[in-house]
Simulated assay, not measured.
Amino acid sequence: MASVIPSKYMSTSPDFPVHFHGWLRIDKDGRCERFTGNQIEPPGTDLSTGVQSKDVVISLKSNVFVRVYIPKNTVHTNYKLPTLIYYHGGGFLVESAASIVYHRMLSLITAECHVVAVSVNYRLAPEHLIPIPYEDSWEAIRWVATHGNGNGPESWLNDHADLQNVFFAGDSAGANIAHNMGIRVGMDPVNDIKLKGVILIHPFLGGNDPIGREGQDEKHRQHKEFMDAMWKLANPSGVVSDDPLFNPGLDPRISSFGCCKILVCVGEKDKLRSRGLNYKKVMERSGWKGKIEVMESEREGHVFFLSNASSATACILRTRICTFINPIRSKA
């Protein structure tokens, strides 16, 4: 792997056989040290939005938890809201549902879209290799479904979550997960949940053959090699970049996608933009009967909204997500 990745992205040494610069390194004893995504925000009441949140462990065996969000002044009401199940990004290697950037983002989305949000803290590679992140994500969906009759373990979901109006969303690797969960729901429907739509923000997708900008200039070629190496680190037993989990065009199950609408968000300067645009073509050719929409953020790079949530383009992006989830309320 190291031999094909430019040294600006990755290096090796006797003490650190794997070193992804700026991301993580693995020492010779197998211990993983992460350099990003470590800044944590505890749950509670967000001062800027009034959104309330709490962490709930959904599996004592794996210690996987979700962070549940409800809008301001919701806790003492009894009306139901659309339910958003969200998967964070980070290349399957870094970040968490408790990361400060994701906590702030989910607080804003919860307030602006007026939803109940469930942010999933799936386990990370390389300690927990694929398919574990997908299995944790699927377990979270099934846990949410236990609240369908109002007798689940979490009162906020019992009281406020409309499970007949569910959306999956994620950014980067989380968008990859949201896509694959959409297929899985289509193949294996979950009782008490109706999936209405899926939102893929700057999706982390790939394939052995370069497409679009990936084959046009050296920076994009090197970036593709780096993304492929990250995928291989998270999924060393897969079929490299043409694994159907990573290359949706090779997934024979894709036409069974479990909802009727998808929103794909791309950034004009994101080096994964070509993959996001190609995803629309893949879905339209697949035999899937739904509708797919694309939104492009001008002059913006990969997951820009995490570092600059108050920018005009980040606000426009969140507004588009809100309209996708609840078009009637957005027009009101």
Rank of each mutant, 00 (worst) to 15 (best):
R275Y: 02
F168G: 02
E95F: 13
E225M: 14
F16E: 15
F226R: 02
Q52A: 11
I193V: 15
F35I: 01
E296G: 12
S297I: 08
K232Y: 14
S310T: 15
D251C: 12
H179Q: 09
L306V: 10
E300Q: 15
K54T: 14
P126Y: 02
C322E: 03
E298Q: 13
S255E: 10
N235A: 13
G249P: 03
S62A: 14
L60P: 03
D171S: 04
R329N: 11
H202P: 03
N326Q: 11
N278E: 10
D251F: 06
I132V: 15
T323I: 15
F305A: 02
H103C: 09
H147W: 02
I130L: 15
S3F: 13
S155E: 13
I70A: 02
D192W: 11
S155W: 04
L129N: 04
K61P: 04
K54S: 13
N151H: 15
I85Y: 01
C322K: 08
A332Q: 08
L317F: 13
A97D: 03
V190E: 02
T313P: 08
H202T: 10
P126R: 09
N326M: 05
P126M: 10
Q39K: 12
P131A: 07
Y69I: 04
D29F: 11
G301V: 05
V239N: 13
D29N: 14
A314G: 11
S99A: 11
G267L: 04
C260G: 12
E218W: 07
I58P: 00
V66E: 02
G207Q: 03
I328G: 00
G148Q: 01
M187T: 13
K224A: 07
Y102I: 03
E112H: 13
G152T: 03
Q222T: 10
I132T: 15
N247Q: 11
P17R: 03
E112R: 12
V240H: 14
G215C: 07
Y102H: 09
V303R: 01
L250G: 08
S13N: 09
L108W: 04
G207M: 04
P14M: 05
H128V: 07
M187V: 13
R34W: 07
V18T: 07
A111G: 09
F20D: 00
W143L: 05
Y102W: 12
A111H: 09
K194V: 15
L60A: 14
F324C: 05
P252Y: 03
N308F: 12
M181K: 03
H76I: 08
L277T: 11
I132C: 09
R221L: 09
M105S: 13
R320I: 12
W143F: 14
N191F: 12
Q52L: 13
V94C: 06
R184K: 14
N38S: 04
L129Y: 06
F324N: 00
R67G: 01
Y279P: 00
F167H: 00
D27K: 02
T110G: 04
T49E: 06
Y86D: 06
T313C: 10
D251R: 03
T45W: 11
E218S: 11
G90L: 02
V56E: 12
A145M: 05
K61E: 14
G206A: 04
S53V: 06
H202K: 07
N73H: 14
N165S: 08
S13M: 10
E300S: 09
S48V: 15
E135I: 11
A173W: 01
